[in-house]
Amino acid sequence: MLSRRIVPCLDVRDGRVVKGVRFRDHIDCGDIVELARRYRNEGADELVFYDITASPEGRDVDVGWVERVARELDIPFCVAGGIRSVEQARRVLHAGADKVSINSPALQRPALIAELADAFGVQCVVLGVDSLRDDDGDWRVRSLSGDPSRMKAHAKPTLEWIAEGVKLGAGEVVLNCIGSDGVRGGYDIEQLRAARAVCPVPLVASGGAGAKQHFIDVFQRADVDAALAASVFHDGSIDIGELKATLASAGVPVRQAAIPDIAGMASA
């Protein structure tokens, strides 16, 4: 049976891992490769590196650190942020990333999703969706959320955008519920359940993890394939090995992590 995945997300700025609350106030948390190795050894199933500076500033992703991670890591990882063309995606994938995630550039030009799927296959293409509930009660997408001063609201309803993105060729969707992000009150189960109903490809929950129970809830009640979190892993308040043991005893299928170090590392 396919395991549900636990995915730590590392926000990257200038080649370092940083963290923030509600996308603000970033502080340095350490070296990318060191943190990647730590999470891999704790039993993370996959990592997401989100270049939070790339998209708002119109920069390219620096592939130097992507290659450093790819050389060391023996679990899959995805790179998000700053990818707006097939050529840029190719550089990131050839540097060793397994998937690329696109968000604002896909909203600006939805055909990008199809171009990436044609070039690399749907399994390499992740659609990142930042979503917020508006005053009228509907969820709508946001873009450029890496920088609050430039974040844009769109008229596009979140659920419609997810369905459109999958039709265009997204092989996975990460739904980041901005309203619950960074405040550790739990995932937005209602929104994720609604997204699940329109999303035939793997769906990753993002935003709101604060306790182990939140992970049990999101897998059992929203039927997501993976749960992404950042700060609770970075500050050690949730240990991934313990989280997986808790999930397993709650009946959620997970990959149990009894993990020797990365091949070649131990004897180095």
């Binding site: 679990i75 394939d225 990959r255």
Partner: peptide, 29 residues
């Protein structure tokens, strides 16, 4: 869901040196 994406268990059907050291039920990506 398709694509099949993530870690899933391998069930060996016969012994071969190719699978040496890979325990029953171990998961691959």
């Amino acid at each position: 869901r398709v694509p099949h994406m993530g870690w899933n268990a391998l069930s060996a059907l016969r012994a071969t040196p190719l699978l040496d050291g890979i325990q029953a039920g171990e998961q691959a990506y």
